[in-house]
Design a protein around this nucleic acid. Structure first.
Lengths: 344, 344
DNA sequence: TTGTAGGCGTTATCAT
DNA sequence: ATGATAACGCCTACAA
C-alpha cells in the first residue's frame, strides 16, 4: 500500500537534497559513489518512478500522440491504429485515441482538448461531416501553434501537412482492367455518397479505366448507396434491373452484401459475375466464395503516419529556426488480393 | 502562427499579475469588472486555453483513462472500447489505449508507463500470456498506489477489484438448451486452448446443460483449436469423423469456418446441422446463412467499466479516509441473437 | 561532491 | 481589488 514516492520523499528520508537525489538517479558523476548507491538502492526498494506529468511540464513534451478517427469499429481504421500504436510505442510514445463519430463538432472538441498540452502531435482521418462542410480551421489552428498533424486516408487538399494515402484511383483502375482482361464488359460500381474523397478517387479510377479502353460509361451501372445503412431492396432492384457481369465495390461490406444478393438471384460467382471489394478485412476472407479485395495495408499506413509525425515532432524540438516547413504525401500502394470471387 | 499563450504572457502584456489574470479568467469576484473584461477579451483574442499538463500536475488528476487490451482488431474489444470512449468522453475524460498483443511483458510495460502520472485509472482485459502465467503483481502494485483498476471480460479471481463480465456460462447453457429443444442431440463444442477463463466458462455451461438434461458428455464432440491459427484440415477431420447436428463455437470466426466446412461436406444449415457462435460481429451478420450468435453487448460492457472506474476515481478524490474499499462485479447479460443458422 | 535557486503553467492562500 | 508567494515534481545552471 505504498503511495507514489517522489524525489522529495527520498531526499527527506536520506537527508540529502532533492537535486542530489535527482542526479544520483541519473547516474551523474557529480555524485559520490556511496551516495549514489544509497540513493539508488532506496529508489529501487520503494520502486521510484519519475512522474511523467512533471517531466512533460518541464520538457514541454508529452510523449503522447493524439489519434482522431471517425470510427473504431471499421476494420480499416482498426488496422491503421494498430500500425500507429506499434510504431509509436516502440519509440516510447503513448497513443491517445478519440473518436469523432463522423461528427465535425466532436472532431473539433477532441482536437482542442488534446491540443492543450496533452499530445505532441496528431494523426487523423477526417470525419464525414468535416469533409462535407469543408471546414478545417481546427486543424490549421493547431498547426499554427506548432503542433504537427498527419492526415491519413480521408485527407484534404486544403490543409498543408504531411499525409498518407493509398493510390485509390490507380488501384480501382487496375481492378477494372482485370475485369476487362477477363472478358467482362458490363462492369458495375457500387459506391457511397461522395463527400468521401476516397470514394470519389475510386470512382474516378473506375471511370478512367473504362474510358481509356474505349468503353463508354453507363451511369445505370453505378449504384450509390447511403453511408450508414444498407437497403437490400435497392441492391436487389439494381441487380434485377441491370445486366452485370462484374462489380467493383468501394468497401467490403457492400461487396459481401451485393454478392449475397446476386447469389440469391441465381448468379454464380465468379462464373456469371465477379466481385472485387475495397478493404481487405475478415469479412472478405470468410465470405463464400471468398472475396477478391483491394488490400489497403492499413497497418503499414499507420506506421508511415506515425513515422512522419514523430519525425516532425522530433525535428521541431531541434530546429528552433523553423527553416521553411516541408510536407510530404506518402502513398501506400494498395494491392489486389485475389480470392475466389474473380477468375484467376 | 501564434504560439501557445500562457497566463504569464497575458499578465505581461496587460501589466497585471499572473494571479490577477488567473482569477479574472475564472470570473472570480475578487477582480474588478473592467480588469476582468480586459483580461477576458485579450484571452479570447489570443485564444488562450489553460495547459492541461500544468493543471494535471497541480491537481494530481489527469482526466485520462488508460485502457489496456490484448488486441484491437478483434471486434469484441473494439466495441467495448467504443463504449468506454463514449462514456468517458462525455464526462471529460480522454482515453489512452495500449495494446498488450497478448503478451505479459507488454502488458506490464504499458501499465507501468501509464501509471507514472499519465492516467487516473485503468480498464483492462488480461492478455493471454498473463492469464497463462498467473502473475498479477503489476496490477496489485498499481492498485496499491491508489490507482483504481477495472477488469473486464478476461478477468481473474486473484485480483480484488471492480470487474465487468458477461454470464458466459449461463448463456452457453441456454444455447445448448435451445439445441436440445429443437431436437438436436449430437451437440458439439468448438473451443480453444483453455487458459482463457471465458472459454472455460462457456465450456462449463455446455457441459452443465447436457448433464442437467440427462445427456452424457461425449469428449469426441469437443474440438479444441489453437488460439491464433485455424487449421482447416483439423476441422474437416472433425466433421467427417463425428456425427453432429449442432455446434456451439466460442467465437464467431470458429463458427463461420466450421459452418463453411460443414457446408462443403454437404451438410445443409440449419436443416442437418445448426450453429451458434459467440461474439456478435459483422461476420455473423453477413455469413450465409447468417449466424445465430451470442451477443456480448460489448459497448454496454465498456460503458459499465468506464462507469465503475470513474466512480472510483472520483470517490478517491473525496474520501481521504479510504473507508474500507468495496469492489463490485457487474454482469452484463448476453443474449442470443437468432438468425438463420438455427431453427426458429 | 553536494546544495541552492529558478522555472515549466497553474491555482490557492495570504498579504497589501 | 490586486499582487506576491508557495506549491505540484522534476531538472539543471550555478554556487558553495
Amino acid at each position: 500500500m505504498k503511495k507514489k514516492i517522489t524525489l522529495k520523499h527520498i531526499a527527506r528520508e536520506l537527508e540529502v537534497s532533492v537535486s542530489t537525489v535527482s542526479k544520483a538517479l541519473r547516474n551523474s558523476d557529480e555524485i559520490g559513489r556511496d551516495t549514489k548507491e544509497k540513493v539508488q538502492a532506496f529508489a529501487r526498494l520503494y520502486n521510484y518512478k519519475p512522474n511523467n506529468i512533471a517531466i512533460s511540464l518541464k520538457n514541454k513534451q508529452t510523449k503522447n500522440i493524439g489519434v482522431i478517427i471517425p470510427n473504431i469499429v471499421h476494420h480499416f481504421f482498426t488496422t491503421v491504429f494498430r500500425g500507429i500504436e506499434k510504431y509509436a510505442s516502440d519509440r516510447g510514445y503513448n497513443v491517445i485515441v478519440c473518436v469523432s463519430d463522423e461528427s465535425f463538432d466532436k472532431e473539433v472538441i477532441n482536437m482542442e482538448m488534446l491540443a492543450n498540452g496533452s499530445v505532441d502531435g496528431f494523426i487523423m482521418a477526417l470525419s464525414g461531416a468535416t469533409q462535407r462542410q469543408n471546414d478545417f480551421n481546427h486543424i490549421t489552428e493547431v498547426m499554427g501553434q506548432g503542433i504537427p498533424v498527419v492526415l491519413f486516408d480521408r485527407v484534404t487538399d486544403q490543409v498543408n501537412c504531411d499525409k498518407v494515402v493509398i493510390n485509390d484511383r490507380q488501384i480501382a483502375y487496375e481492378a477494372v482492367l482485370k475485369f476487362l482482361a477477363n472478358g467482362r464488359e458490363r462492369i458495375a460500381l457500387v459506391t457511397n455518397e461522395s463527400y468521401f474523397n476516397v470514394s470519389e478517387e475510386r470512382a474516378n479510377g473506375y471511370i478512367d479505366a473504362l474510358k481509356d479502353n474505349g468503353r463508354t460509361i453507363n451511369e445505370n451501372l453505378i449504384l450509390t448507396l447511403a453511408y450508414d445503412h444498407i437497403d437490400e431492396n435497392v441492391i436487389t432492384g439494381f441487380f434485377e434491373r441491370e445486366q452485370i457481369d462484374a462489380v467493383l465495390c468501394v468497401n467490403e461490406i457492400f461487396a459481401v452484401c451485393c454478392m449475397g444478393i446476386a447469389q440469391k438471384l441465381g448468379y454464380k460467382v465468379p462464373e456469371d459475375i465477379a466481385f472485387i471489394g475495397f478493404t481487405d478485412g475478415i469479412l472478405s476472407r470468410h465470405s463464400r466464395p471468398s472475396l477478391t479485395t483491394v488490400a489497403q495495408h492499413g497497418e503499414q499506413m499507420g506506421e508511415m503516419a506515425a513515422k512522419l509525425l514523430i519525425e516532425k515532432i522530433e525535428k521541431e524540438i531541434n530546429d528552433e529556426d523553423m527553416e521553411q516547413e516541408t510536407y510530404r504525401t506518402e502513398i501506400i500502394k494498395a494491392t489486389i488480393m485475389e480470392r475466389d470471387s474473380t477468375d484467376n
